[in-house]
Amino acid sequence: MSDPAADPPAELTPDATALYARALGEGVLLAGREGLDWAPERIAAARGQLAGLRLLRPSGPGRWVPASPEAAAAELVGPLELEIRRRRLEAERTRTLLRPLRSLYAEAHRERGRSAAVELLPEVGQVRALLDEVSRSCAREVLVSQPEALEGATLLDSRPRDLDLLARGVRIRTLYPHVVLASPVVQRHFALMTEAGAEIRTTGEVVDRLIVFDRRIAFLPDRSRPGPPGALVVREPAAVDYLHRVLERDWDHARPFARTPLGYGDAADGVKRAIVRLLAAGHKDEAIAHRTNMSVRTCRRHIAELMREWGVESRFQAGVLAARLGLAGEEGGPS
């Protein structure tokens, strides 16, 4: 049977305190002669608590003597402190054992960074760790294209990193599709980030996620396998420069974010223009929805509204009319 005093009580009840005071006054506590008008069960409970806290010690059958709180604490806490010291020594031995490998790892990591023009990170944890590392060393600019609104967990993960970059004077520019403006949550996030100094624009189409740090390293999603995508990390200067210039071109044709009370706001025409351009090119609804980062159902609703607005009965007529009106050109061009 286990010792009931092995696991001390979590608190000291008023009954236990009163019984302890009685024991101190008498110098001894005798079973059945406690001098308290309590039921036996109540006395036993208080006595058991004092024994668990090492404040009462048996000195014979039905006889207990009080111990000082200091002695009780030493008996209870002493083994814990010994275990803590043992754990600390074990931790320090582990650190000492691994310390010589730190410089080896750092040098290998630097060499890999210098030599690996393209690196594949299959695990999300690896991607986040490298993003944090590159963010800490970023000095000038982060340029991002984001094809969809970030989920809550991802926002919580990325927002502190972005705010830290802005606080250090790093310029952050992010490009989103117009359709994300339909979400009030997204608009609140955009407002918070722009107030902190970030620049956000929206456009008709965003192909996929791309992050470029200081024009020296780029992150692309790796969707070659099922499950959450990893990342392709590009360090080759010519390739990074090309990706940056492509993203810069899309940025130049995009619309600056302006908070609106409902829907796409000023970006509504941009949404229509993107749909019309793809309609005129002969794309099907599914392809248009994918390219404009919206659901097929929402895409078909927009197409139906355009056809009603223009008084045409077929997608082909809509495409022809769009070309004739100059609406099928690139966003930012003539309308």
Rank of each mutant, 00 (worst) to 15 (best):
R168P: 02
G230D: 06
E331F: 00
E83H: 12
R259N: 07
R249Q: 12
L80T: 13
A117V: 11
E123N: 10
I211Y: 00
E81V: 12
A322D: 00
R259Q: 04
V124I: 13
P100C: 03
R112Q: 08
T194W: 02
L30G: 08
R291C: 04
E248M: 14
R255Q: 08
A18E: 14
R128H: 11
K284L: 14
D214K: 07
P61Q: 14
R291D: 09
R216D: 11
E123A: 15
A46Y: 03
R99S: 11
P61S: 12
T292V: 11
R86D: 14
Y242N: 08
A218K: 06
H109F: 13
V234A: 02
R161Y: 04
E286D: 14
S135I: 07
E34T: 15
R110T: 09
P177D: 03
L50C: 11
A108Y: 07
A268I: 06
D157Y: 11
V124F: 06
L321V: 08
V170D: 01
H302S: 03
G27V: 02
A182S: 08
W64T: 00
A322C: 03
G32A: 07
R291K: 13
F316P: 01
R249Y: 15
E90F: 07
P79L: 11
E81M: 10
D164M: 07
L82M: 11
E141Y: 04
L24G: 03
T194Y: 01
V144W: 00
P69K: 08
D241G: 13
T13W: 05
R128W: 09
A106H: 13
R173K: 07
A254H: 06
R57I: 09
P228Y: 11
L50D: 03
L104F: 08
W251K: 09
A198C: 05
L150H: 02
H244W: 12
A198F: 00
L232F: 09
H283P: 01
E107D: 11
F257R: 00
L30R: 12
P160A: 14
R245G: 13
V142K: 00
L50H: 05
A117S: 13
T292E: 01
A281V: 01
R33Y: 13
K284I: 08
R188S: 13
S2A: 15
L327T: 00
A46H: 07
T94E: 13
R324Q: 14
G230I: 01
G329E: 02
A274W: 00
D222R: 10
R201P: 00
E309L: 08
S103T: 06
H189I: 05
D241I: 09
R315Y: 09
R291V: 01
W251V: 07
R215D: 15
A304R: 07
T260S: 12
E70M: 08
R255G: 03
P237L: 13
R308W: 05
L327V: 04
G125R: 10
A31Y: 13
T298F: 09
C138K: 01
I303E: 07
V28L: 14
D222T: 09
D132K: 12
Y264Q: 06
I84P: 08
